[in-house]
Amino acid sequence: MNPTIGAVRAGLARGLIELRHSFTSFSELSGHLFWPLLMVVVLFFVQNSAVGPSGFSLSAFFLPSMLGMSVAFNGLLGMSGLLSADRRDGTLLRAKAIPNGMLGYLVSKIIYVGGGLIADLAIVLITGSMLVDSLTLGRLGSWLALAWILALGMVAVLPLGAILGSLNSGSGGSQGTTMLTIMGLVAVSGIFYPITAMPQWLQWIGQSFPIYWLGLGMRSALLPDSAVSAEIGASWRHLETAAVLGAWATFGLIIAPIVLRRMARRESGSSVAARREKALRQLG
């Protein structure tokens, strides 16, 4: 068999093993459950608030928006966090030291982040749908729309996460900066309240990044048509969604291999040792 196909297979196996580890270790499992459960709690408290001209319930607006946000969070923060942690502790160097190891490593991260994301989405969707009754879960079209938004969204955000993880120095501080930046973007992306309630210039910022479009796409998939009145131009703008997410995906897929290769080239035993010493000094 071709070694490249072999490495892709090994990467798949690795991703599944790591997923299993993450669901069988208490600390990782609680980390997994934290965000989805927080979202469900938020849903519970906004159950009776209304939004938009049609008096639509805020929780119905929230649920799909948060699913969209989860895609962005897992892809950007999850991927970049994994990459910088794996650089720090030498996992990446191990991958580099074996034939086709980097390919297997990347495949495994995609599986791992993707699998974790689907689990997160399922938790929010299943528990959330008990609190929110206006979701259109009975329509086949809803699931198809959910699938293409999810697939395109992941292709858009995973490479971006890999770029962020390669660029930051691998310290806790830079990961924190990434997190704050993404939180800021979430705030202007119409996740917690319709974007139409914000000033025009903020709307433009929000619409240049994938998070807004992920939220919009998820709302278009899961909300009844009447909810569209709270959106810009009272339209689900599917074409624009595909165009913006597609543009980010293209950008990421072109830039990520370059940045990843540059980052991986710099990894060596002494760079890992230097980071380890730095981390141990900070601990001590």
């Binding site: 068999m1 072999g6 490495a7 093993i17 191990r94 034939p99």
Partner: peptide, 28 residues
């Protein structure tokens, strides 16, 4: 290459990791 491990692959079991890493070499 013998690398100095620190805390990488902490959740993996010894046999599982050796089996996995070995699988990359099967084609060579």
């Amino acid at each position: 290459i013998v690398l100095q491990s620190w805390r990488d692959h902490g959740n993996w079991r010894v046999r599982e990791l050796l089996g996995h890493l070995g699988s990359y070499y099967a084609y060579y």
